[in-house]
Simulated assay, not measured.
Amino acid sequence: MKKIITFCFFAFALVLGTQNAVAQNKLEINKVANEKAYELRKELKFSDDALEETYQAYREKALKEYSLAKHDGVNTPAYAKNMATVEAKFSATMESVLTEEQYKRFTIINESK
């Protein structure tokens, strides 16, 4: 009985540790998305509404990238195919958020990185 309780305790500790690691990754993703959105705002000078939508687009892209890397592995054909879809959706979102001139500048900035 003591061994079962000990085993359950360790299993529970592992579950909590895993959730903490995932939360840390999400916090890091949010931080990076925020930094990229503000960096882009410095370059393109857009409104607060556009800033929020840009942040959400970067965040969604990063979360999907993380999820795909975890699920498919990085160097697989499925990952490359899914990332192409994620990139296309990200570009479409950015095109709808930014003005035509801002989007042209965004593509130039994005290609140079």
Rank of each mutant, 00 (worst) to 15 (best):
V32D: 13
P77M: 03
V97K: 00
A84T: 06
G73Q: 02
F7V: 10
A88R: 06
E28W: 15
M1G: 14
T54N: 03
F12Q: 10
E28R: 15
K81S: 06
K36V: 07
N75A: 10
N34A: 13
K104H: 08
K81L: 09
L51S: 05
K113E: 11
Y58P: 00
F7A: 13
L51C: 06
A62V: 01
Y79R: 07
C8L: 14
E95V: 01
V74W: 11
Q102N: 03
A33E: 00
N30D: 15
E60D: 10
G17L: 07
K89W: 05
T99Y: 02
K61V: 04
E60Y: 08
A80W: 05
A13I: 11
N20G: 15
A23W: 09
M83D: 00
T93N: 09
L27D: 15
Q19I: 13
V22K: 13
I29F: 03
F10C: 06
T18A: 15
A21I: 11
A84F: 05
A78C: 06
A13Q: 07
Q24I: 12
E35S: 11
K61G: 04
P77G: 02
K31A: 14
K42R: 15
T54K: 02
A69H: 09
Y103V: 00
E65F: 10
N30M: 14
A69D: 10
L63T: 04
A33G: 04
F90A: 02
N34P: 08
E53C: 06
E100L: 04
A21S: 09
N30V: 12
A69G: 13
I109H: 05
K36P: 05
Y58V: 02
A11G: 10
T54V: 07
Y66H: 12
V15A: 12
M1H: 11
A88C: 02
E111K: 12
Y103P: 00
T76L: 01
A50K: 12
S67I: 05
A50Y: 03
K64T: 06
K26G: 06
N20K: 15
A21V: 09
E43G: 08
N82S: 07
K3F: 11
D48E: 11
Q102W: 02
K26S: 14
H71T: 14
A69P: 03
I29V: 08
E28Y: 09
K45F: 13
A69I: 07
K89Y: 02
R41N: 09
V97T: 01
E52N: 12
G73F: 03
E87V: 04
E65N: 14
V97W: 00
F106D: 00
N34H: 14
T6F: 14
A23Y: 10
E87H: 07
C8T: 15
L16K: 05
